[in-house]
Every structure is written in C-alpha cells, then in structure tokens.
Measured scan of single mutants.
Amino acid sequence: TETYTFDSEDQAEEFAQRAQKKGYTVEKRKENGKFKVRVE
C-alpha cells in the first residue's frame, strides 16, 4: 500500500484513474488542503 500526495485535485484524479486502469484499488481523500491517493 502506497499513499501519494498531490497539490491539485486534477493531478490526484488523473493518477487515480491510471492506477485503477492497472487494476489497483484506489482511495482518494482530501486532507489539509492536499489530495491524497492511497493505492493497493
């Protein structure tokens, strides 16, 4: 499980979609103005 942090929602969304296409489970959340994407 890895967590990635992005400054913009667009970046987080793009990353999450790519990860989902590769078959990963993706969980997105906003925390302290940053966008976190957890991938497993």
Rank of each mutant, 00 (worst) to 15 (best):
K28N: 05
S8T: 14
T5S: 09
F15Y: 04
F35V: 05
K21Q: 12
K34Y: 10
E14K: 09
F15M: 03
A16D: 01
T5N: 04
R18I: 11
K22I: 08
K22W: 13
T3F: 11
G23L: 02
E2T: 14
G33Q: 04
K36T: 14
N32Q: 08
G23M: 02
A19P: 00
Q17A: 12
D7F: 06
E9L: 08
T25G: 06
E14C: 13
K21W: 07
R29L: 15
E14Q: 10
K36P: 01
G33I: 02
G23E: 02
A16L: 09
E40D: 11
E31C: 09
V37F: 01
F6C: 08
E27H: 13
Y4L: 04
A19R: 04
R29N: 09
K34N: 05
D7V: 06
N32P: 02
A12K: 00
T25Q: 11
N32Y: 05
T1N: 10
A16M: 13
T5I: 12
T5E: 12
E13T: 08
R38D: 09
E40Y: 15
Q11R: 08
T25E: 08
E2H: 15
G33C: 06
T1V: 14
E14D: 10
D7P: 04
T1I: 13
R29Q: 10
D10V: 10
Y4H: 06
E9G: 04
F15P: 00
K22L: 15
E40S: 15
D7E: 10
T1H: 12
Y4Q: 03
E40H: 14
S8G: 05
A12R: 01
A16K: 05
E40M: 15
K21M: 12
V26G: 02
E31Q: 06
T5M: 08
T3E: 14
Q17R: 13
T3N: 05
G33R: 03
F6N: 00
R38F: 13
T5W: 15
F15Q: 01
R29P: 01
E2G: 14
F35T: 03
G23F: 03
Y4C: 08
E31G: 03
Q20P: 01
E13R: 06
E14W: 09
T3P: 04
V39E: 00
E13V: 06
R18N: 11
N32G: 12
D7A: 07
K21S: 12
E27W: 11
G33H: 04
V37S: 00
V37N: 01
K36A: 10
R18E: 12
E40W: 15
K21L: 13
G23Q: 02
A16G: 04
V39I: 13
Y24G: 04
K36Q: 13
Q17I: 11
K22E: 13
A12W: 04
K28L: 15
F15G: 00
